[in-house]
Design a protein around this nucleic acid. Structure first.
Length: 282
DNA sequence: AAGCACACCTGCTAGC
DNA sequence: TGCTAGCAGGTGTGCT
């Protein structure tokens, strides 16, 4: 489900719920939800009794930092396409279908990982230094919100690439956090076609991309993220996002471009569909 | 070695 | 009404 804005909205909610809390019990109902573990028992035993120091995010990955160790233990969570973290006020609250992992907290609440398509996953990890990046996330490029501090950061990720811009922006090793929705919106607002070779952009176009990336992601977070028609994405408390109301092109094939009125077109990029305005984007 | 296709899953919708 | 095909915010792998 989520791209960077949705992951960040979930992280903020999660932080408020788990920071300083102790995980009194951990339950795994479906092994596939927990990866990179010798056994589910190893995961459950390692987490039970641990206290949460705080949370972080790199791209679309959530990082739950554990206290009461050497400060380098974390749990990484990725929501995949359909994953949700949901708060239950007590263990008595009925579990939704596809609840795969439950963290019971010392205040009686539960954090539940719900994921119909099972592309989401979580695993224990380590950082090199306290507060650092988990070692399994070393392949990720700069975070699209926190690390694009200068146009040169993005320029170096695009330079000399022949792959199409939209696909390069969705490549998490190039820039971390952007997916199908936000690359559509960012390319539209930057006025560039996602079909152009990534390395063929002018300096001014890269600068515009960096600028609108900051604006789009920030606005989307403020709006609580994007919830599409199937309402797959909700926050910890079940609230849908509202940023889809501000989408200019994504999933709007056949409708009028909000700027020039031209019909928005849908085209295939690899295995998925992108949306754009052929007049506003060149 | 960069770029692409495909696999991994379940659920919903459009079309017949 | 019921069936099927196709599509859905993701990442990782393995082929060319």
């Amino acid at each position: 489900m989520p791209e960077l804005p949705e992951a960040e909205v979930v992280r903020r909610g999660l932080d408020a719920v788990v920071r300083g809390r102790t995980l009194v019990a951990v339950e795994v109902g479906r092994d596939r939800a927990v990866r990179r573990e010798p056994s589910m028992a190893a995961f459950v035993d390692a987490l039970a009794g641990r206290t949460v120091a705080g949370t972080g995010r790199i791209g679309k990955f959530l990082v739950v930092r554990l206290a009461d160790g050497d400060g380098r233990d974390v749990v990484v969570v990725h929501l995949g396409m359909s994953g949700q973290l949901r708060v239950a006020e007590s263990a008595a609250e009925p579990r939704r279908p596809h609840t795969h992992v439950v963290w019971a907290l010392d205040d009686g609440r539960e954090v539940r990982f719900v994921d119909p398509r099972t592309f989401g996953q979580m695993w224990r990890d380590r950082t090199r230094e306290p507060g650092g990046r988990p070692v399994t996330l070393g392949h990720l490029g700069p975070d699209a919100l926190d690390d694009l501090t200068d146009a040169s950061v993005l320029a170096s990720r695009l330079a000399n690439r022949r792959v199409r811009l939209k696909l390069r922006l969705m490549d998490q090793t190039a820039v971390a956090g952007l997916g199908n929705i936000y690359t559509d919106e960012i390319c539209f607002r930057a006025g560039v076609s996602g079909g152009r070779p990534a390395g063929a952009l002018a300096d001014a176009e890269v600068e515009r991309l960096v600028e609108v990336t900051r604006v789009v992601l920030t606005d989307a977070i403020v709006a609580g993220g994007s919830s599409l028609a199937d309402a797959q994405y909700v926050d910890l408390f079940g609230r849908t996002g509202e940023y889809q109301r501000q989408h200019a092109v994504h999933a709007r094939a056949g409708l009028a471009c909000p700027v020039c009125g031209t019909e928005i077109v849908r085209e295939r990029f690899g295995g998925r569909f992108g949306y754009s305005c052929s007049v506003c984007q060149t």
